[in-house]
């Protein structure tokens, strides 16, 4: 019978135990587990995830362990032929607290969720980052996200022309 806990090794050489249920919420780990059926149960290496971030991921998985399996919602067939905008509202209070972290941590979790293929967590991070971007001017975005303005005046002029010009101007 399969063990109830799984060992993983993080990028900072920490070995962390997580339950099989939580591990299976990650498609990446799940695939590795399926590939290693019958083999010696060694710790699964996760070279792209630090222990700090993995603990965050496990926290999220613990809270959402009883959620229904994710369904293909985004491109679901729509009877009325209306294309629905993605809903970027985070409704779960726990999730709201969860994403209340430094942007550095958020992007680490995003990368980890992508690498581990935890769909719900990945979508949550995308929504949160999108919400952070909304309502901000380019200057405010640069300041908030620590982005260097590497656009030249020519770039900006070209953009104004492409995105803001009238037909007569262009």
């Amino acid at each position: 019978m399969a063990s109830e806990s799984i060992s993983v090794t993080t990028s900072d050489d920490q070995t962390i135990q997580l339950s099989r249920k939580h591990a299976q919420m990650s498609q990446t780990i799940n695939s590795m587990l399926e590939d290693s059926v019958g083999a010696d149960q060694e710790a699964i290496p996760l070279p792209n995830v630090s222990s700090e971030v993995l603990k965050k991921v496990i926290d999220w998985c613990t809270h959402h362990e009883n959620d229904p399996a994710p369904v293909e919602k985004v491109k679901k067939l729509n009877k009325k032929r209306e294309y629905k905008a993605k809903n970027s509202t985070i409704s779960d209070e726990w999730d709201k607290n969860f994403v209340n972290a430094e942007l550095r941590v958020i992007v680490d979790i995003l990368l980890a969720a992508n690498y581990l293929d935890v769909k719900g967590l990945f979508e949550l991070m995308c929504k949160h980052i999108a919400n952070e971007l909304k309502g901000k001017t380019p200057d405010q975005i640069r300041e908030r996200f620590g982005i260097q303005d590497d656009l030249t005046e020519e770039d900006k002029a070209a953009m104004r022309k492409a995105w803001g010009a009238t037909k007569n101007d262009s």
């Binding site: 905008a85 993605k86 970027s88 995003l110 990368l111 992508n114 990945f122 995308c126 929504k127 980052i129 999108a130 919400n131 971007l133 909304k134 309502g135 901000k136 001017t137 380019p138 975005i141 640069r142 996200f145 982005i147 260097q148 303005d149 590497d150 656009l151 770039d155 900006k156 953009m159 995105w163």
Partner: peptide, 26 residues
């Protein structure tokens, strides 16, 4: 590909502003 997934949650105005932020985002 990650940035696109984030941008998919933006409205058009936020998308324009993000595109004015830096060259890679543009």
């Amino acid at each position: 590909e990650l940035l696109i997934r984030v941008f998919q949650h933006l409205d058009w105005q936020a998308l324009i502003y993000c595109g004015n932020t830096c060259s890679s985002w543009r």
